[in-house]
Amino acid sequence: MAELRLNFFQRNSSKISQAVMIIILVLITSPILLGYAWLILRSFSVDMVHGFIPTKLTLKNWRFLWQEMKGYPNIWRTFLNTFWIALWVMILEALITSMGGYALSRYDFPGRTSMLRFILVLHAFPSISLMVAIYYVLKVIGLLDNLWGIILLKASLEIPWGTWVMKGFYDGIPWELEWAGLVDGYGRFEVWRKIVIPLVKPGIAVTAIFAFLSGWSEFVFINTFIFSQNAWTLSKYVKGIIGDFRFADYGLLTAVGLFYVIPTIVFFFFVNKYMIKLTIGGVKG
């Protein structure tokens, strides 16, 4: 048999394919990376030339952190408002979807199938088309211009999707585990709390994370249903900078924008492992 000769590309095929992959990924992500790079640079500079080169570095754009800005609410108050909304949307959604998902997964009640279908339709429904109706509802229950109005609204729009996700996690848990718990001497609720809930923790984490982020980044409802500056959130603050009645201050805009995304990035850093579990899908066990 003749000696088998490999050429350069065959010998290094794995290295080459890796290099190609990295180049492709860099190309795809470069618009986002460049965007963030610009955001960071611009927030620390007086002005930029050629679009990308800072003329002089400054901290002036970040002054909103330590001094009151005329025409804007206090940034820390705004920050707390945003956090408050995100937190409560997260709590409500985690609580309700973890119970609703279980019911949809385990109980066979009349209307279950149609409910499952309806949930998906609900999620596909653009919430912006509900604006007028929501306005009336909030007005009637007296939650217009109130953070709790936004919290309830946001949670109720997110819950169908979250319930669907949680149902998927519950579906992955074998019935035998619950049966074993019942036989071992526990009631249905205790079995749910002691055996089932610990196993769907990744699911609860994932729905909670998404709920938090969606509450954190909410803009449309706040822009529509919040009037007083006391109840502004960061998204509204950013909008305020490029608002209709003043010249846009790009230095301030980039600094506030960056301030707005920092918690999200930190948050992702901490919850990364749960996000990975979601892509793997379901529960190990």
Binding site: P174, L177, G181, L182, D184, I195, P198
Partner: peptide, 20 residues
């Protein structure tokens, strides 16, 4: 009578051990 009052034990095919 619910299972918890029956004073029974059960061994399952997949063992149904609580993974956590």
């Amino acid at each position: 009578v619910p299972p918890k009052y029956r004073n029974i034990s059960m061994v399952f095919q997949n063992y149904a051990l609580y993974p956590h």
